[in-house]
Design a binder for these strands. Structure first.
Length: 430
RNA sequence: UCCUCGGUAGCUCAGCUGGUAGAGCGGGUGGCUGUUAACCACUAGGUCGGCGGUUCGAGUCCGUCCCGGGGAGCCA
């Protein structure tokens, strides 16, 4: 019977078949220890050569790393085995003999690993990380679904920038038209919210930023809820509940993967609402007291974010940034028009901004002026202005960067490992 | 775009004030009945990132270009 290695302990004393790849092999005379992985977990299979039929012995001859094989044997609970269980091999069937495998069970440099990303993802660590990523997305969608949100897919090919043109990827569209890869699904999500009230977009977004840091990709995934009849309090609560649910779901469902990643989980266990909330002014004051040279009116730099988040054990929510350093569509604070009704959530441990959101300007005249001020091509935004012409309501939303959330929860330094095939400033292969 | 570090065997690296290429891992062969990145022995494997210069002689010094790491700027 074929089983997933994850379930092996439930089959003690049974003869099972596992199908997978050879992760490593140790030989000691007539005994061979095969470490086999199947995408769920690795298992050690012990082959005693004199007990095997000639075909199986042949299969083991010259076996290389990452060769694919099917192993049938008796499941033993054995203290000597890593993980407590192993398979006593009865039959080995070679599916494909791999060429000598380039990735060794040794250290490698990032350039080499990234060139071999298509193979690197087979490593136990990378597989665990990508499993955590899948769980983050699943948990987030599950939470929003339970809360009555409708998934609303935004287009990836768009007619114009919703932000600065410097970070736009341009594409050729049909009949000599131009198209741009989406920097955010938000504007479309706003249209969705006017139709379905509570929606979210989920998908890849693209920014041609020449950023070379551990927190930036040129192609990254965002989850963007957008809610009609909502204000800053509403999205603040949603953000902290969403993030808490995702963290707890990963802790509950993927403990093995977190262990493989050697993630210290004590700090994650305490992630629950409410999160600390401070204003931008508070943040500047705290940072200046801690020795930062930041001045009021400047955006928080990477170091500032790390310094600020290190003051709290939970993600910290910073609100009311100066409107000048924020986007054109953000609604100003009625009590202080210099400030925007916005929020950023900074993850602990220096993982930076994982959420950015705001209340949207819902007044036609004001939004129209902002578009002029920012010298945006008005004709591209006519449909967006329509949302303020026909039944405009207060509404708000935010974007959550999937890769940064995964990096934080999994405890990996660089976001390039949190997506199967990262796109970076100097890398589009493989 | 700027600062900084780097590019030598398939991989990770060493290579002194310039003198003609090294180790470990991986590969191959052989040995070993409990290995945990197994171990032991033998063995094959190199356009020292490219181009130009200085020199009797350049992996090493100089110039330039290319590629990458870390960071900054930039980045709802």
């Amino acid at each position: 019977m074929e089983i997933a290695i994850r379930d092996i302990k439930g089959h003690a004393g049974e003869v099972v078949t596992v199908k997978g790849w050879l992760y490593n092999r140790r030989k000691s005379g007539k005994v061979q220890f095969l470490l086999i992985r199947d995408g769920t977990l690795p298992i050690q299979a012990v082959a005693f050569l004199p007990d095997l039929d000639p075909a199986s012995r042949d299969a083991l001859k010259g076996l290389t790393k990452e060769s694919s094989l099917e192993v049938t044997g008796l499941v033993n609970l054995d203290e000597r085995a890593p993980g407590g269980a192993e398979i006593q091999v009865r039959e080995v069937r070679l599916v494909h003999l791999a060429d000598p495998y380039p990735i060794a069970a040794k250290e490698h440099g990032p350039d080499f690993l990234m060139d071999n990303r298509h193979l690197w993802i087979r490593s136990l660590r990378q597989s665990a990380l990508l499993t955590v990523r899948a769980e983050v997305i699943r948990a987030a969608e599950e939470f929003l679904h339970e809360a009555g949100y409708i998934r609303f897919d935004a287009p990836i090919l768009t007619p114009a920038a919703c932000e600065g043109t410097t970070s736009l990827f341009e594409a050729h569209y049909l009949y000599d038209q131009k198209a741009y890869l989406s920097q955010s699904g938000q504007l479309y999500a706003e249209a969705g919210a006017m139709a379905l009230k509570k929606v979210y977009t989920l998908g890849p977004t693209f920014r041609a930023e020449k950023s070379k840091t551990r927190r930036h990709l040129t192609e990254f995934w965002m989850l963007e809820p957008e809610i009609a009849f909502a204000g800053l309090d509403h999205i603040t609560r949603l953000a902290e509940e969403l993030v808490s649910h995702v963290v707890q779901a990963v802790l509950k469902r993927r403990p093995t993967e977190l262990k493989t990643l050697e993630r210290e989980t004590a700090s994650l266990e305490g992630i629950a609402p409410p999160f600390p909330k401070i204003t931008y002014s508070d943040a500047i004051e705290i940072l200046q007291k801690r020795g930062s040279s930041i001045a009021f009116g400047q955006d928080l730099g990477g170091e500032d974010e790390t310094l600020l988040s290190s003051q709290f054990e939970r993600p910290v929510i910073v609100t009311h940034y100066p409107a000048e350093i924020k986007a054109f569509y953000m609604k100003r604070d009625p009590e202080n028009p210099g400030l925007a009704q916005c929020l950023d959530m900074l993850a602990p441990e220096g993982y930076g901004e994982i959420i950015g959101g705001s209340v949207r300007e819902d007044d036609y005249g004001t939004l129209s002026e902002r578009i002029e001020e920012h010298q945006l091509p008005r004709e591209s935004f006519e449909w967006y202005l329509d949302l303020r012409r026909y039944g405009s309501v207060p509404h708000a939303g935010f974007g959550m960067g999937i890769e940064r959330v995964v990096a934080w929860i999994a405890g990996v330094k660089h976001v390039r490992e949190t997506i199967p095939f990262p796109r970076l400033i100097h890398r589009i292969y493989p």
